[in-house]
């Protein structure tokens, strides 16, 4: 938008920048020779350090999610109806009476109150994970809009283990975000919502989810039989990835 302010600001700035454009400085991606197991181990360690919960799952992940949500006292779960993940969920959901499944298939205007006041948990997929920081990469879509990962008190995410990369930098460069073009609202999520604004003491669930539950799908039919975050992730991984 042209405006007098714009022209005046640019003119002043041009006086301070004679000469040609300065090229971008060297910015190579720092590479780590982490194996897939090492990336998974680091991802779990970093995410659990910020109070994310991790379950290693297989194709029976809906049952795993169900029992975990039941233990947390959730009575409903909002999911993206028109996604493959949603279809898997519905197919294998053990008991709709105990935890109701709410399809999220309307504009926010039609479900705002329900989302804000009557949803216990939500399920989304994600684009991948970042080992270094225990981060989930979400590219919300038409089917899986952004508020799903933000408003309900429990946010559950299914992550494919082979989609964990070492660093954000690597993720963004290898998958050519700049070239592909970004979605409306790309997100990095590392743990549940928290604040340290009072005495620098961490408190969780300030505005966003109080709990972040990450189901890592390690491979076909290799569910974690105990449904618990592994005490020693490496040992559990050996089995999970076998």
């Amino acid at each position: 938008m042209n405006s007098p302010a714009r022209e005046a600001i640019l003119q002043r700035l041009r006086r301070g920048t004679p000469g040609g454009a300065r090229p971008a400085p060297e910015n190579p991606v720092r590479r780590f020779d982490w194996s897939p197991e090492e990336r998974l181990r680091r991802f779990i360690a970093a995410l659990t350090a910020v109070r994310g919960e991790v379950i290693l799952v297989g194709d029976d992940w809906p049952a795993c999610l169900f029992s975990r949500l039941q233990a947390k006292g959730a009575t409903n779960l909002r999911y993206a109806a028109d996604t493959a993940l949603g279809a898997e969920l519905v197919r294998a959901w053990p008991d709709r009476g105990a935890i109701a499944l709410i399809p999220h298939d309307q504009p926010i205007e039609a479900c705002r109150t329900q989302l804000f006041t009557a949803t216990d948990a939500s399920l989304t997929g994600c684009l991948g994970g970042i080992a270094e920081t225990g981060t989930l990469v979400l590219w919300p879509s038409i089917q899986e809009p952004r508020l799903m990962s933000l408003v309900p008190p429990i946010h559950a995410v299914v992550l494919e283990a082979d989609r964990i990369r070492s660093t954000f930098h690597e993720f963004l460069v290898e998958e050519d975000w700049a070239g592909r073009g970004l979605p409306t609202n790309a997100l990095l999520i590392s743990g549940p919502s928290k604040s340290a604004d009072i005495e620098q003491t961490l408190a969780y669930g300030v505005h966003g989810p109080k709990e972040l539950l990450v189901l890592i799908r390690a491979g076909r039919g290799a569910a974690d039989p105990h449904l618990n975050p592994p005490r020693d992730p490496t040992a559990a991984l050996a089995g999970a990835l076998a």
Partner: peptide, 21 residues
Amino acid sequence: QPITTYVNLISGPRREGERDG
């Protein structure tokens, strides 16, 4: 912190067909 809980990359208002934003 190695990273904040949320990194929010906004590249536009709600697009055609999107359900929130």
